[in-house]
Structures are given as structure tokens and as C-alpha cells.
Nucleic acid binder design. Structure first.
Length: 229
DNA sequence: AGCTGATCATGT
DNA sequence: ACATGATCAGCT
């Protein structure tokens, strides 16, 4: 009984979140920022995460720097995705940082990538740089869970990357690898170092990496959702 | 340093 | 034109 009641409550909360996100469609960044008491920066050059933070604020996501979902009680991750005039993603999507040590015990099933992508509340946003930031608008939010085929692709890429990391080959991995999930630097700058495994199993220092969804993958999600093509 | 939120800017 | 490697801000 208790479980059933909780289940219902979670569904109600999820619906409320989705309704709230849906209601944001059409608003300009200026309008939403005013509502949230935020100031629209001139551009995103020194405020790259600003749009994401604007939506987090509007939807009441638990802020912070923890490696958790945005709505842990709902198991939902919030992601903004900048689109061009044709509805194509302009950027890859950061998923989470990549573990580079103690990786032997890790499995896809328990991975942070799988956890984060289990249920995503995507919010398409106008990413056109030629449009002043204040005038850009919010698109139609949608909930997504990876299909079996999509999860299989993600798992295969994740496993390939993690195998290389475990073998001490992290520095040979480029963003070209992975069908849908790539590994790229994720740091304040290229001089930042973190612990990793070297080619002979020894400890080395390397640039921190993150997992990113390639634009072809997110582009297909967008097309599937909005019946484009 | 290492997470979160990401986009920038350059090379191809 | 586009993706890769680099970078920016805030908080812990």
C-alpha cells in the first residue's frame, strides 16, 4: 500500500514538473529571467551555463554541485538543448564526469551515465547566436527515456571507453570514438590534472574527462519527438 | 580539485 | 559547416 501511495505521489509530482516545464514554451529568456530575478548577460561567452541555470531556477531544481539527478526524488535529469533554425542541436550534451580510477568494479548498470539518462526532461532552447540572448525563447519540453536500442548503444560506447580507461589508455581516447557517447575534456582549462591509470597500471596525472552525447544522437531524439524528417 | 551548468573558438 | 579540444562561472 505504502509503495503504491508513493508511486502515485511521484507521478503527481512528475506531472506537475512536466506541466510547469511545458508552460514555459514561448517565453523569452528576458521574460523568464525577470520572473526569476536574474539578469540576462550580453552573451554566453562568460556565462556558458546561464540558460541551464535559468531553467533550473524556474523549475525549482535542487541546485548544487553534487553528482545527482536534478530531481532525485523523481529520478529526473533536466537538460537544456540549444537548437538551430532547423531544430538541429548546436552543441553536444554533457552527461557527467568520467571516473578514471577504481574503474574495474564499475558496471553500466550502476554507472552515473545510465543513472543520469534514465529519465531526462529535455527543454529545447533557441541557440541561434545571431539572435540576441534576451530575445531567444524556450521551446516545448518533453520527457525522454532511452529505448532499448538507444540504451544498448550507450552501454556499448560506455563499455568501450571504460575498458580503455581500465587498460591505461585514457590519453589515447579522442572525441571521435563512440557512436553516440563520446569522451572529451571537462575542466577549467587544459592544465588541470587528475589521477588516472597509466599504460603499465601505474598512477598518472591527466586532464579530467566527461561523457557527452553526440549531436547526431540528440538530433534523432528531437526528430523522433517532434515528428520531423 | 572536482562537481554542477554548459558554449566557445579554432582547426579541419 | 561542423566537431573537437578548450574554456567559463559558481559552489563545495
Amino acid at each position: 500500500m505504502k509503495g503504491l501511495i508513493r508511486f502515485d505521489e511521484v507521478n503527481v509530482q512528475l506531472k506537475q514538473l512536466f506541466d510547469k516545464a511545458s508552460a514555459l514554451a514561448g517565453y523569452s529568456f528576458a521574460e523568464l529571467a525577470a520572473e526569476q530575478g536574474m539578469v540576462v548577460p550580453k552573451d554566453l561567452r562568460r556565462n556558458k551555463g546561464w540558460v541551464g541555470q535559468l531553467l533550473e531556477s524556474a523549475l525549482g531544481a535542487s541546485a548544487g554541485s553534487q553528482a545527482l539527478q536534478d530531481f532525485p526524488e523523481l529520478g529526473v535529469e533536466l537538460k537544456t538543448i540549444p537548437l538551430d533554425a532547423n531544430g538541429k542541436p548546436l552543441e553536444t550534451t554533457f552527461v557527467c564526469t568520467t571516473p578514471l580510477i577504481n574503474v574495474h568494479e564499475l558496471t553500466w548498470e550502476s554507472s552515473n551515465v545510465r543513472n543520469k539518462l534514465q529519465c531526462v526532461l529535455w527543454i529545447p532552447i533557441d541557440g541561434r547566436r545571431e539572435v540576441p540572448l534576451a530575445e531567444r525563447t524556450i521551446g516545448t519540453a518533453f520527457l525522454w527515456q532511452p529505448s532499448a536500442a538507444q540504451e544498448a548503444q550507450l552501454k556499448a560506447d560506455w563499455q568501450e571507453h571504460m575498458d580503455k580507461i581500465a587498460l591505461g589508455e585514457v590519453e589515447s581516447i579522442t572525441a571521435h570514438q563512440g557512436e553516440v557517447l563520446q569522451l572529451r575534456p571537462k575542466a577549467a582549462n587544459s592544465r588541470v590534472l587528475t589521477d588516472a591509470i597509466g599504460a603499465n597500471g601505474e598512477a598518472i596525472q591527466t586532464l579530467p574527462r566527461g561523457f557527452y552525447l553526440k549531436t547526431q544522437f540528440t538530433g534523432q531524439i528531437i526528430r523522433d519527438t517532434f515528428n520531423l524528417n
